[in-house]
Nucleic acid binder design. Structure first.
Lengths: 118, 118
DNA sequence: CGGCATCCCCCGGGATACTG
DNA sequence: CAGTATCCCGGGGGATGCCG
């Protein structure tokens, strides 16, 4: 049972598959201040490979979270920007990072305590 | 460069590793109404294997999000419950599911449009 | 009941090289 | 510049079996 029926029908699960992807979140966060080109995105998301960046952008585009605008010029220019839907998700991403900044210390403390205990 | 320095030092990334895990979110959500036993959790999270449930619970315990209480009785009884930290994360999980329920239709529409186009 | 250990398979995703 | 194509490896995670 690799693809559980319940998991697929659960809306939260659908979103988790998107939100859960770190690259997606980082990409959405990178577009918070406006549209960016492919290369600009690559620079703002350290560690991402071209493959994953493209793959992530396609997924976000497919889900209606970002727009992909191709300019017919040489050299080629492609701009990526958040849609209204993407911006609503951006709020969640910020809530996530807020929680992180607020509680990461507690988590790290808990980890240290747990590791030293066992 | 398998373990990128920037990624590891970024707090949001630390949290994403936890939040990003679907099993973690589902587990936290399952504990929203109070403590549950191992088997009860397994029942409330369809599709999760014993291995992943244990692994997830250990991770959540290590991060100080859940408590693990062993009762010295036969048959053995182990209760899991959210900590204060875990409950603060629960708020985020609910925000996630709220977003999901609100916008999943838009996402599915966008997907259908994208797929029929290409 | 509540695990841990082991085996094993699959694929996510990094590295590299090439193209319109 | 903005990708695609190919190769390849590590580990995530399911299935199974054994313990306290």
């Amino acid at each position: 049972m690799k693809t559980d029926v319940y998991a697929k029908t659960c809306p939260s699960r659908q979103v988790l598959d998107r939100i859960g992807d770190a690259w997606s979140v980082l990409t959405v966060a990178a577009l918070r201040d406006g549209s960016l080109r492919y290369t600009e995105l690559a620079q703002r998301i350290p560690g991402v490979s071209p493959k994953m960046l493209t793959q992530t952008l396609r997924g976000l585009e497919r889900d209606g979270l970002v727009t992909r605008t191709v300019h017919a010029v040489v050299p080629p220019r492609v701009d990526y920007a958040l849609t209204a839907l993407g911006r609503s998700l951006l709020g969640l991403c910020e809530a996530l990072t807020d929680w992180a900044e607020t509680h990461i210390v507690d988590v790290l403390d808990a980890r240290a305590a747990y590791d030293s205990r066992s």
